[in-house]
Design a protein around this nucleic acid. Structure first.
Lengths: 194, 194
DNA sequence: GAAAACATGTAAAGAGTTACATGATTTC
DNA sequence: GAAATCATGTAACTCTTTACATGTTTTC
């Protein structure tokens, strides 16, 4: 499954512009399928070329035309086929965890900064992105959430808060242990320098 | 950060062959940074060419030569620089959550199968991969775990079991709700067919 | 007799990220 | 005066995935 299929799925809810789709990816999608303009606009162009969506240009003054995309019948059929054929995978790629894994190679202050930065990020995701997604009428939200959407949203919240709690709780112990194992080395270095 | 840096970091523990590195990626790394032969072998070749590791060929009969990789002094410096400069990110890409998000477009049996497949997968990760990683002396495990490694491992366990628990707990409700919202449609269709 | 473990790689295709390119309006 | 919102896109780069290619030994 790629960004193209996700766009098609979002458009099945209601017609949208690329810009609106981007907003949907940010709120409530970011935590399980990140995508930016650089992948969304080309995806929409391909969908249009394949006849899976139609594009209607809406003029605006002092702005580029809005391009409203609508799923065609073929598009809907292709979407369902694609979804049925997709294997459920779940991949994590975390520079954060990798950095912690190699924490023994880093200065403890840097490790502390890494943990803090990640916690800040997750807090923002919880408060800004995921909190918005179920307010009907909120910007970038879906008018009415299906059971699957609620499941996905709640899954995201659960995972992000679990991650946040884990880091918050383990941080003091990690830093203590790192300093304990680096202090003897510092002592050795000091002796060697004499 | 890419597979190259991760390989360099693993080699900083002790010299290894590509095959051994692959095993390390499978046990205890898979949950936060997946990589296969297709990315590991080219990464090792690049590290060697850049002088960050040396390669020693060890003859074996009836098998291709083992190639043992060792980090050079330059390699170690480059590794630390790279780690210090890396921003902590944490990305999830989940076809699984996407499928659930679009569950209303799928037959409920398919949704049930998707949930079951994912739970099976996560159970295997917990029992096969993550369970091995801290047994010192176990195959593909690190001789002695640093505080950071323990943190990363426990983080993985926490996240995977949280995901598993969430799906296990929410599955009945999701399926019930999906069938409730599809049954009216079936009724409509039946009426329309008369 | 089949499957898994051991052991290395290449090549092409597919996908996503980042930076570039433009520009008015509104809000802080 | 700066930053965010609205609104579109392209192009180059980087990276990963998948399939190909080969072959023995050990375990079930």
């Amino acid at each position: 499954m790629d960004v193209k299929t996700l766009c098609l799925g979002l458009l099945a809810e209601r017609p949208m512009t690329g810009y609106e789709i981007k907003k949907r990816f940010e709120t409530g999608f970011r935590h399980f399928f990140p995508a930016g303009f650089g992948s969304i606009y080309p995806a929409l162009a391909e969908l249009a070329q394949a006849g899976l969506v139609t594009v209607e240009s809406v003029e605006q003054d002092k702005r580029p035309d809005k391009k409203v995309h609508r799923v065609t019948e073929t598009g809907h059929r292709v979407l369902v086929d694609e979804l049925v054929a997709t294997d459920p995978r779940h991949k994590v790629r975390s520079e954060f965890v990798a950095l912690v894994y190699f924490a023994h190679l880093l200065p403890p202050e840097r490790v502390a900064a890494v943990l803090d930065a990640m916690m800040r990020d997750w807090k923002r995701v919880l408060l800004d992105d995921l909190a918005q997604a179920d307010r009907p009428g909120a910007d970038g939200a879906c008018p009415e959430l299906t059971p699957g959407m609620r499941f996905a949203l709640e899954f995201g919240r659960t995972m992000v808060s679990t991650a946040l709690d884990y880091v918050k709780q383990q941080k003091p112990q990690l830093l203590r242990e790192l300093e304990e194992s680096s202090r003897p080395a510092a002592a050795r270095n000091a002796r060697a320098a004499e």
